[in-house]
Every structure is written in structure tokens, then in C-alpha cells.
Design a protein around this nucleic acid. Sequence first.
DNA 1: AATGAATGAGTCTTCATTCAT
DNA 2: TATGAATGAAGACTCATTCAT
Lengths: 208, 208, 208, 208
Amino acid sequence: MEVVNISRRSGYESKKRIIDAAIKVFSQYGYSGATMRMIAKEAGISVGGVYLYFKNKEELFLFLMQEKTKDLETRIASIFEEKRNVKDTLEKYVKIAVEYASENKELILLHGRELGFTFGMEIKKGFFEKQKKLLKNLIEAGISSGDFAKCNSEEVAKLIMHIIRGYVLSVVVDPENLIDPDECVKIIFNGLLKVKGDSSPSLCSSSE
Amino acid sequence: MEVVNISRRSGYESKKRIIDAAIKVFSQYGYSGATMRMIAKEAGISVGGVYLYFKNKEELFLFLMQEKTKDLETRIASIFEEKRNVKDTLEKYVKIAVEYASENKELILLHGRELGFTFGMEIKKGFFEKQKKLLKNLIEAGISSGDFAKCNSEEVAKLIMHIIRGYVLSVVVDPENLIDPDECVKIIFNGLLKVKGDSSPSLCSSSE
Amino acid sequence: MEVVNISRRSGYESKKRIIDAAIKVFSQYGYSGATMRMIAKEAGISVGGVYLYFKNKEELFLFLMQEKTKDLETRIASIFEEKRNVKDTLEKYVKIAVEYASENKELILLHGRELGFTFGMEIKKGFFEKQKKLLKNLIEAGISSGDFAKCNSEEVAKLIMHIIRGYVLSVVVDPENLIDPDECVKIIFNGLLKVKGDSSPSLCSSSE
Amino acid sequence: MEVVNISRRSGYESKKRIIDAAIKVFSQYGYSGATMRMIAKEAGISVGGVYLYFKNKEELFLFLMQEKTKDLETRIASIFEEKRNVKDTLEKYVKIAVEYASENKELILLHGRELGFTFGMEIKKGFFEKQKKLLKNLIEAGISSGDFAKCNSEEVAKLIMHIIRGYVLSVVVDPENLIDPDECVKIIFNGLLKVKGDSSPSLCSSSE
DNA sequence: AATGAATGAGTCTTCATTCAT
DNA sequence: TATGAATGAAGACTCATTCAT
């Protein structure tokens, strides 16, 4: 909300300021709870000014969601490009997703709130479907390569997505108790159960 | 011999009707999105009537949260009382939590949204802390009993809570892709990695 | 705008007050020019109160138009019932219409303003069509009875409607120069032209 | 040898463009309904540009009214100059007025609406007074010349003005039922009543 | 215990007007 | 002369809350 030569800014700059402000405000107060005045004030712009760049509250919100979704998709795509082994890729995936969740905190939560709107549903649906496929393929590649044990790849993909969503929710609900991504991956890889007849130290012993 | 008509309900009954209505309406529209009129209508009571039992919207919402939290705590407590086997207890825990999430869907999400209010924070904090301890103790008991491999019990507890939260979020965001609790538990127990030098079929093979 | 026991009025009374206020305000400022606050204030009611009885500005306006239209239709119907001779009926018709216009002044004008709305068009269309038919039948009855000369009844009906509309418009635009209905009828009946070979005093000589 | 691009228009041309645009927009949307942005866009000029030529919306509207009034006055004056025969002059007068009304449709209506403003009242007043005098003189000339029967010239003048206004209002309200000026003049000239003791076909028989 | 009409502050949104360029 | 981003007051409409009945 720093004042930047308040009366003459480029259109681009103003739009950017509004976007940043909107993310902040929507995140903190939810869709209904956020007001256009709050957003304008946070952006250091007049109320009317916001409407110069976004037709209305709904469109502003939708825009944010699309932007963020695209952004995350790009980041994720990149790890799949730099081909390395399956295990590392999965590890990276979880980390990037979790890191992204931390950055965008509550905004992501809004994906799931403010029902009664149907808007934005398609965006979300598409994104999730894509992610699930990506993960499923990765798991299956892992099975083929002999890295992973045979398992229901669909369910594993879902589990990973659940964990990431759980992380997202925790960021807002219970930020003191976020899981450490490394630990998380370790548990998923090794499981909780003691391998029978195995007296050697389990891989799951992490912190000490 | 008067007819007990609609306006002659016991105070208790009215309060209950309001609570049920409020859960439904808050769940569907979020805190800001829900209106007292909606709630009153859903409860089959006048607007003014609601204020006879709850000072205001905030208090009504808060009351709901407490009720639900208490309810879940009771359910969870019961499995710890009756159970013996650690593995079964954990399995049961996940299932109950997940089932509860399904039942209370969006309402639970409201725990974490509609911020700007600090209200409810203490209730949630306390509840989460208790749950984490419960899980941590369970994990440690599992390690002691030799069921579980040695691991960072704190992180495992967090993971399980994350998964449950992920399930909650998924219920709202992506209900077509909910994980199957059985599969979930299986993966957590066995892990993804193929046990080295093990050519026998992994425990993790679920779908076939 | 007299205060009437401001805090407790019957629903009926409030609605009536709003209607009266709305007529006044819409008449004076036009549809766009009138504000709900003005209307509420004029009615001695809160803004929100107006919305208790009318869904929105448009509906309030529409309601007014319908009411007034129905009212006029009833009045006109009555003169056709009390069957008298054609000439007298026509005379009465003009007078009632003109009188009505005076009473409802600008509101009637709103029928024709505030375009861009299509709303209300059907109401108006129906009303006008009915009136034209009524008048046309009357003219034709006059021709049959030998009271009126043979003429294009359709055009005569239109002319009469035009005159009445002209009166309406004049009420607002140029109220100092309203025609006297008696004079008006006289001219329509007798025409301006001197009847050829007629040296007797014309019926059209009125004021002196 | 510079290219005369769009932004290098003469002040005169710009002003003209604004005027034309304003007429169009005011006519279609009414005073309150029209926005400066609409007008600017229609004129192919920036919002700010409009304010270079007109201090504000009110002044722009006022200017339009004056222009149009002057224009009509000029047209009417011309028929009085060229004409001789009273009957023909009156006929011409009605036709020109009616034609003008058709051309300027709703704009004329704006003369009488959008009150709350007192503005423009003097312009209108003056114009109407002039017109009434013109017509009155014409009628009296007709009486003197023996063309018209003796009658209250003032009232006849008013009637004609009413008819024209009725035509204006009809253009907007009920454009399907506009009177044919020829028919109109015929009725005014001949009247509706059958001349007593006259069995010859009335002059009023128009349609067949 | 219950009602629901009434209130008015607060929301989203529009638009006349200004002004740096 | 011209632009159009920016302003902010004002309008339609909503809704938590009150209170006479």
C-alpha cells in the first residue's frame, strides 16, 4: 500500500496493484467478506478505479483464480520436463505444491469456499483432473521402473492430492502444525508398518 | 384442550430447529453469505425468534462450532476406549474422521475461513492440539508394540491430520475424487517403495 | 409526509404511503431521476421499508403504471355503460380523459419516457388498443345514427387520442395554455371551415 | 505535409460531432439515462474532449434544446413568408410540425421531462408563446378572409398545438397509431357533425 | 415465546468531472 | 486540442438487528 506517485500510474501498474490487493483481501476475508472498498484501499486506488480494470467483484475474483491456477500449472509442468527419476520427481512435486500453498495461503482455500456460486467450478475441475492424471502416470512409471511396489495408482494419486490439500487447509486452520515435506515424502515412500522379519533400522527413522 | 399450534413450541425445540437450520444454511452459503432470514425461514421461525436464543449471528455461528467440535471429540474418544490393537485403532480413527467430514462437509471448512474474526480460534486450537496428542501417543504405542517402524511420531500425526483435512477440503472442492479410506490406510501402512530385495508381491497391491 | 405514529403502521398503510410518494417523486423527476431514498423519505419510511413492499425500483414503477391504467379504464368503462347519445358520450370521454390527465399529470408522461426500458410496453400497448377500438366503435355508431358525417373512423379515433395526449403533454410542458375541453369538443364537432352558402351563425362561435 | 489524423480535427468539427451524438444519446436514453461516456463514444471523442466544448452535462443538454428550437422556428417562419392562402398555410404548418416531431422524436419529449431542473423553461415558454400567437393570427386571418367560420381563435390555436404535441407523444408512446396529417387536417377543417339538412356527401368522407 | 414490520448502515456499482500528459 | 486514468459522491439494494404487539 505504499504510495507511488499516486495520481499518475500506468494502467498496467494499477491493475497489478489491484490484483495483489485483491489476493490479500479475498484471502483474509473470503469472497463475501471482502469488500471492493477494502481492495481499493489496499491497492491505494479509488473504488471506481478498480472497476476500470475489472467489470465487477465476481470477475476480479475469477481472474485471480485463473491466474493462480495457470501459474501453478506452469511450475508443475517444469518439474516434469527436467526428467529425472520417478522418486525424485514425486518428491519435487509434493514440495512445489506445498510451497505454492504456503505462498498463496487462503486464496487457494477460496477455491473450495463460497459455494452458491457455480463460477470457477470448471477452472478447478480441469485443473484437478490434469493433476490427477499427471500423478497417476508418474506412479505407474514408478511401478514399471521397479521403484514403486505394485499399487492402485489412482488411489495413490488421490492420496497425494489429499495431502497437499490438507496442507493447504492446515496453512489456514492450524499453521503451527504444518508437516515437513521431507518427512511427509518419507512416510509415503516407506509406510508405517515394520517390514516383517526385518530387524535392520527402517528407513522411516528420520529425525534422530 | 387447546391445539398445540406452531407458535407454541418449547424453547428447547425452537433452539434445536434453529441450530439445524443454521448448520444447513451456513454450510451452503458460508458465514457472510448466509443471512439470518434464511436461517429463520429454514427453521420455520420468525427472524426475531432467532434472536431469542442467540444474541447475534456471530454467537450463533460460534455455538455451532463448539457443538460440532464436542460431538467429534466424543466420537473419537469412544474408539480409544473400546479398542485394543493399535493398527485397528488408527484405521478406525481415520475412518471416523473421514466419515465425520463427509457428514459435516462445508461447515468444517468454515472453521478455517471467515477470518477477520479471530473468533473460534481458541476452540479450534484446543481441539487440534488434543487430536495431535492422541495420534502421537497412538503412533508411539504402535512403535513400542512393534507394529510400527520407528519414526517421527509427531510428523506422522501431522500427516494423518493433513490427510483428513485434505479429505475435508476434497469433499467440497473435488467430491468426485475422494480417496477410499481403506486404500488410504493401506498406503500409509505399507508405503510406496518396493522393499529392496523383495520380489514377492508387495502388500500395497490393492486393485488386483 | 405527515408523521403517523411512525414506528407502528399497518402493512397496508405503508404500502399506500409508498405508492403515493412514488407517484409524486417519479412524476417530478422521471424514472432515472427519482431515487429510492427520495421516495422513502417522501413516504416517511426507511429505504429498506420500501423494499418490503416492492422488489425493486422497476417493479414499483410498473405497479404504479398498472394501477393508474386500470383506474382510468374503469372510469372510461363507466361512461359507456350509462348509455346516452353518441355525441354526449364522446364529449364525456374527452372530458374524463382530460380530467384524468390533469390529475395524474407527469406520471402519465412517464408512459412515454424512459426508453431503453422495454418494460411496461405491453401494458401500454394493450390499453391504447382498447381505447382506440372503443372510440372507433363510438364514431361508427355516430355515423350509423346519423349524428356524425361519414368519415374515416380509425383516423378520427386516432385524432381524439392525439388530442388527449397533447393535453397530457401540455399539462407538463405548457400548463398555462391548456385547452378548454368544451371548446375542444365544439371544434371537433363543427370543424373550422365555414359551411358554404351558410350565412347563419356557425355553431363554432363560442366565446362571444 | 503532416497527415491530418483523427486527433487533429477543427474545434468546430468536434463540437458538431458532440452535438449530433448528444442528440442521439439523449433521445434514446433520456437525460438521466444518458451518460457523458456514451455521448463521447458516439461522437468518437474522449470523455475529456466533451468538456472542452461544454462545461457540463446540463449545459450540453440546454444547448441542444436551444438549437432545436431555433431550427424549428426557422422552418415555421419560412412557410409564413412564402404562403398566401390561409387554409394551405395551416395545413402546411401542421405538416411541418408533425414532420419535425417525427424527426426529433424523443428529444422533443425531453423538453417537458427531466424536471426538477427548471432549466430550459424560459426557452420553451418563449417558443410556445410565439407559436400560439402565430397560429392565432392565422386563424383570425382565416375568419376575416371568410375561409374559417367565426370561432374562438385562441382555443383553436391551442387545439392545434395540442394535436401536434399529441403527435409527438404518440411517436414515442404508440408509434403504430400515428395519425395521417392529411386526415387530421381534413377533420379539423370539416368537423365530425353532419351538417343539418345536408344530404350531400360530407367533405369529411375520406377513406372511400 | 413469538412475530414481522421497520430501520439504516453498509455493499456493489455507476458516472460526472478533473487533470497530468 | 485531445486523451483517458483516476476520483468519489451517489444510487440501488441487502441484511443484521430491534421492538411494538
